[in-house]
Each structure stands twice: as structure tokens, then as C-alpha cells.
């Protein structure tokens, strides 16, 4: 009886998840088709579209560009986010609220607006479009997230360990590098991975700020103009696969390291 009453709920749950997974499922399924259009009926399986994908030089180049931009910008965003969070958490002052707001501000503005601002400023100042500009923009969009993640992980108990290190003769820099950073490593790594996946996927800023050397999403957008094509399915599946791997590595790494880090109490 209870099960019967719950039945509509379960059916809705299954339908909901089917809806959520439908596009990914179709995308991946038809990347293995042997026909020249990604439409039913499904023929195959075949890997020909993946072969074409990896022999497409411009696409592979865009993929490498994306990995470089995402890695570098995430590294900078994580570092800057960490420094800001550390500074604010360790030096309570009446400016805390204002500084927090200033660092978090980019999260309230659309990527389109951030990209437009950079496009116009660079245009007027005569700075040419480049992957560097894209990376600088990606740092801005990821900074608030890195800052938030690290700030949430900075607790008072760590501060006591830092003080202990100082008492034992560590310099400021040593305490930071040998104590604080290792304690925060899981959060820093999670922040880096999240930034990486967001930068790696980001389209509009990259679209506005690049011309010849482009990132993967911009390249895929160019390919889309010539219509539906299983090669795009294959490329999309690769993008999804890489993002998923980064996310899974982040989850595994943070879970395996999640041990309470406190001073032993007497």
C-alpha cells in the first residue's frame, strides 16, 4: 500500500533523470554512428568520427589551447583566491565586509558583460585579441569561486597550528608554505578543478576575445555553422569526458584526504 502510494514519486524521479540525461546519452550514442548524420536509426558502432576528430589539426590545436588557458587561468585564480581568503581570514578588520564584497563581485555579473567590458577596453587601448586576454577574463570569473571555497576551509584550529609553527621558529613564509598550504591542499585542489572545468567550457568571453588562435568551445561553434555532424558529437563527448574526469579526480582526491586536522587536545 505504502509502495503503491509512493509509485507516482518513483515514476516521476525516473522520468526526471531520463530528461536530465537525454542529451548526454544521445550525444555520446551518435558519436559512435557509422552514418554521416547524427540521426536515427543508429548504425554502427564505429570509431570513424573519433579518428576524424583527432586528425583535424585545427581542432586538436584548439583543444590544446583550451587546456593551456584553463590550466594557467585556474592556477592564477586559485592562487589569488587563496591569498585573498588567507589575508581576510587572518586579519579581521572593519574592511572585511567591503573586501569580501569586492572579491565576490564578478559572480553577480553575466559573462557576456565581463567579456564586453574587456573587448571594448582592449579595443580602445589597442591591445590585440589573444588567448592571454581570454585567460585574464577566466581568472576573473573563477576568482570568486576559489575565494569562497578556500575561505570556507580556513578555520581557527589551523590558526593554532600556524601559531605553533611560529613558536617553533618558522618564518611567516615558512608557516604559510609548510603549514597552511598543505592543510588546505584538498580545498585548493577542488578550487583548481572547478575553475578548470568552468574555464575549459567557457564560450562567450573566449568568443569575444580571440581571433585566429581559438579555444575548443569557439572552434565547436564554428563547426556548428556547417550543420549537424557526428564529428561534433565525438568532439562534444570528448569535452564531456575530460570535464567528467577532472570532476571525478577532484571528488576522489578531496574525499580520500578528508581527515579532521586539529591539534590533539589535552
Amino acid at each position: 500500500m505504502a509502495l503503491l502510494r509512493q509509485l507516482p514519486g518513483w515514476i516521476y524521479l525516473v522520468m526526471g533523470f531520463a530528461f536530465i540525461f537525454l542529451p548526454v546519452g544521445i550525444l555520446v550514442l551518435f558519436s559512435f554512428t557509422s552514418s554521416s548524420i547524427p540521426l536515427p536509426p543508429f548504425k554502427g558502432p564505429s570509431l570513424q568520427w573519433y579518428e576524424r576528430l583527432f586528425s583535424n589539426e585545427r581542432l586538436v590545436e584548439a583543444l590544446i589551447n583550451s587546456v593551456i588557458v584553463a590550466s594557467l587561468s585556474s592556477l592564477v585564480a586559485t592562487t589569488l583566491g587563496f591569498l585573498a581568503a588567507y589575508s581576510i581570514a587572518r586579519n579581521p578588520s572593519r574592511w572585511d565586509g567591503a573586501m569580501r564584497y569586492a572579491v565576490m563581485a564578478p559572480i553577480t555579473v553575466s559573462y557576456l558583460i565581463i567579456g564586453m567590458g574587456l573587448l571594448i577596453s582592449f579595443h580602445v587601448m589597442g591591445v590585440p585579441k589573444s588567448l592571454w586576454a581570454v585567460g585574464a577574463g577566466h581568472v576573473v570569473i573563477n576568482l570568486p569561486l576559489c575565494f569562497g571555497i578556500v575561505l570556507a576551509a580556513l578555520g581557527e584550529h589551523q590558526r593554532n597550528i600556524e601559531r605553533a609553527a611560529h613558536d617553533l621558529g618558522a618564518s611567516d613564509f615558512q608557516a604559510l608554505w609548510l603549514i597552511t598550504v598543505p592543510i588546505l591542499r584538498p580545498s585548493l585542489f577542488a578550487a583548481f578543478c572547478l575553475s578548470f572545468t568552468l574555464s575549459w567550457d567557457e564560450f562567450i568571453i573566449a568568443f569575444l576575445l580571440t581571433r585566429f588562435d581559438v579555444t575548443l568551445p569557439v572552434m565547436l561553434f564554428e563547426m556548428l555553422r556547417s550543420g549537424q555532424n557526428p564529428e561534433l558529437n565525438a568532439a562534444g563527448s570528448v569535452v564531456f569526458g575530460i570535464s567528467m574526469s577532472v570532476v571525478l579526480i577532484a571528488i576522489l582526491f578531496t574525499i580520500s584526504r578528508r581527515k579532521p586536522l586539529t591539534l590533539p587536545r589535552r
Partner: peptide
């Protein structure tokens, strides 16, 4: 030991000011 960490927030604020705030203000001007 507090002095070093107090200034650690500066690079972040500078980056946000130059790459985020100033361009948007400039966009409004343009």
C-alpha cells in the same frame, strides 16, 4: 607575523579592479 598576510589580499583586489571593474566602468563610458 600579521603584516605579510594583511597585504596578501592586494594582488587579488588589483586584478579584480583592472580586469573586472575598470573595463565595465569603461564600457559604460563608451
Amino acid at each position: 607575523h600579521i603584516n605579510l598576510s594583511r597585504w596578501a589580499v592586494v594582488p587579488t583586489l588589483v586584478w579584480t579592479a583592472i580586469i573586472f571593474a575598470a573595463p565595465i566602468v569603461f564600457m559604460v563610458v563608451v
